[in-house]
Amino acid sequence: MRLTNRMLTVYPRLGGPLYKVDQVPEEFHESFIVKGYRNPKSSAIQCILSVFDANNETLNFWTHFLPCWYFLWVLKGLSEEIDFWNDPYSWPLLTYMLASCAFPMASAIAHVFNTMSDKARHVCFFVDYAALSVFTFGVAVSYRAYVFPDALRQTVSVNVFVIGAVVNAMLCTVVSCHSRFMTPSLYPKLLRISAFAAPYFYNCSPVIYRLLYGTAEELAMESQYYHFRQFIFIATSAFLYVSHIPERFYPGWFDIVGHSHQLFHVFTILALLDQMRATLMDQEHRRPYIDSIRDYPSAAMCLGLTSLVVLHNALIVLYFSFKLDNSQSKTSTSQTMLSEPAKLVQTKEEKSL
């Protein structure tokens, strides 16, 4: 059933009133989303309370907040079975699991607090991109340890794989943050998704090799199915992110429930679930062989390089946050919009639409 403005105003709003697209600054506009916008000058308390309201960010929050807690629950279960402190073989898995918990939480926080101000909106998504970048590195470390096909373990590629992942993680943070300074259009959106597609396919190169050229034993592994299926989910999520379907065809119908960014979150998490399931299977089933040759990243590689990526991303976020002050002073023309009460009040005619 389609949610109308009249239906959205039946109950008191914990996070404050909602607005239509022509009542908020252009910086806060979402393609083909007509209503359900929060006040772009919301307080922190209003932002937090808004997750219990029906607005166009509510499900963006819950579709990443809840999976984060599920991944933490999985990590807790693993910690009861695996001695992460004393078992070097498990350190790549711990790196991956911590990164898997961090990135959906960062995304959820970004979707909560991005309406506090113009600058807060950008900074929130800078942090979101940085956390996703760290996740791409966590994937690379776990793939290097548990997923790499036997045929590539004796080649140069295995030695440079993690270093290449560090470079990719750093670059994708820079590119995705820089894209937010571009004029809103399809191009910066494509640039952002390309910035993360590059490390994704780089990380998955050993998986693709295994799917195409793996040994009979590797092809028979149960994890192969989940390694393959994640590509279907991730391709679907990328398509939804770029295409803005279904709201592109029915503007106003999917503002609260069912718009493309919510579906993008859902399919991203489905891909992550398959990736995690496959990684855990490989970590367990391939241990006798990998442990015997001790061919997995060391503590220095897991902790040291992860810390390097986190530090680099923190500096990049700070740099672009400071850059915002200069950029917005020149280009922002909407800083005072909604500052007058009259502009915050919908007319009876608008409410009846």
Score class of each variant (00 low, 15 high):
residue 46 Q to V: 00
residue 49 L to P: 05
residue 217 E to V: 15
residue 50 S to V: 10
residue 315 L to V: 13
residue 100 S to L: 10
residue 71 F to W: 11
residue 288 P to N: 08
residue 142 S to F: 06
residue 352 S to M: 11
residue 27 E to K: 09
residue 278 A to F: 06
residue 120 A to N: 08
residue 91 W to C: 11
residue 4 T to F: 08
residue 89 Y to T: 09
residue 334 S to C: 09
residue 112 V to A: 14
residue 24 V to W: 00
residue 155 T to W: 03
residue 114 N to M: 13
residue 19 Y to P: 02
residue 197 A to C: 06
residue 136 T to N: 04
residue 73 W to L: 06
residue 2 R to M: 14
residue 86 N to T: 10
residue 68 C to V: 00
residue 176 S to H: 04
residue 192 R to S: 07
residue 110 A to E: 03
residue 53 D to F: 01
residue 268 T to A: 15
residue 44 A to S: 15
residue 129 Y to R: 08
residue 6 R to M: 05
residue 112 V to L: 12
residue 129 Y to P: 04
residue 43 S to Y: 03
residue 123 V to D: 01
residue 174 V to T: 10
residue 142 S to N: 13
residue 1 M to I: 11
residue 282 D to M: 02
residue 207 V to I: 15
residue 13 R to V: 07
residue 49 L to D: 03
residue 293 I to C: 04
residue 157 S to L: 15
residue 222 E to N: 15
residue 4 T to M: 07
residue 72 L to A: 07
residue 194 S to K: 04
residue 56 N to R: 06
residue 3 L to Y: 07
residue 157 S to E: 02
residue 226 Y to Q: 14
residue 68 C to M: 03
residue 309 V to D: 04
residue 74 V to H: 07
residue 209 Y to R: 07
residue 23 Q to Y: 00
residue 352 S to N: 14
residue 42 S to L: 06
residue 176 S to I: 04
residue 35 K to L: 09
residue 350 E to T: 08
residue 52 F to C: 11
residue 330 K to E: 14
residue 58 T to A: 03
residue 290 I to Y: 03
residue 96 Y to A: 12
residue 16 G to D: 04
residue 29 H to T: 08
residue 289 Y to F: 01
residue 269 I to S: 04
residue 340 E to P: 02
residue 209 Y to K: 12
residue 279 T to R: 07
residue 340 E to Q: 14
residue 88 P to A: 13
residue 308 L to A: 14
residue 312 H to E: 04
residue 95 T to D: 03
residue 270 L to I: 10
residue 210 R to S: 14
residue 29 H to N: 01
residue 28 F to C: 07
residue 41 K to Y: 01
residue 326 N to P: 00
residue 127 V to N: 00
residue 8 L to I: 05
residue 90 S to V: 06
residue 62 W to E: 00
residue 61 F to G: 07
residue 331 T to R: 15
residue 4 T to C: 13
residue 282 D to L: 01
residue 214 G to D: 04
residue 145 A to V: 05
residue 92 P to E: 05
residue 12 P to Y: 02
residue 312 H to R: 01
residue 120 A to E: 04
residue 183 T to G: 01
residue 174 V to R: 05
residue 328 Q to N: 06
residue 134 V to D: 02
residue 318 L to P: 03
residue 266 V to L: 10
residue 262 Q to L: 09
residue 134 V to P: 01
residue 323 K to V: 00
residue 329 S to F: 04
residue 300 A to K: 02
residue 108 A to D: 02
residue 353 L to Q: 08
residue 113 F to S: 12
residue 86 N to G: 15
residue 348 K to L: 12
residue 138 G to N: 06
residue 293 I to E: 00
residue 218 E to P: 04
residue 336 T to Q: 13
residue 191 L to P: 05
residue 185 S to T: 11
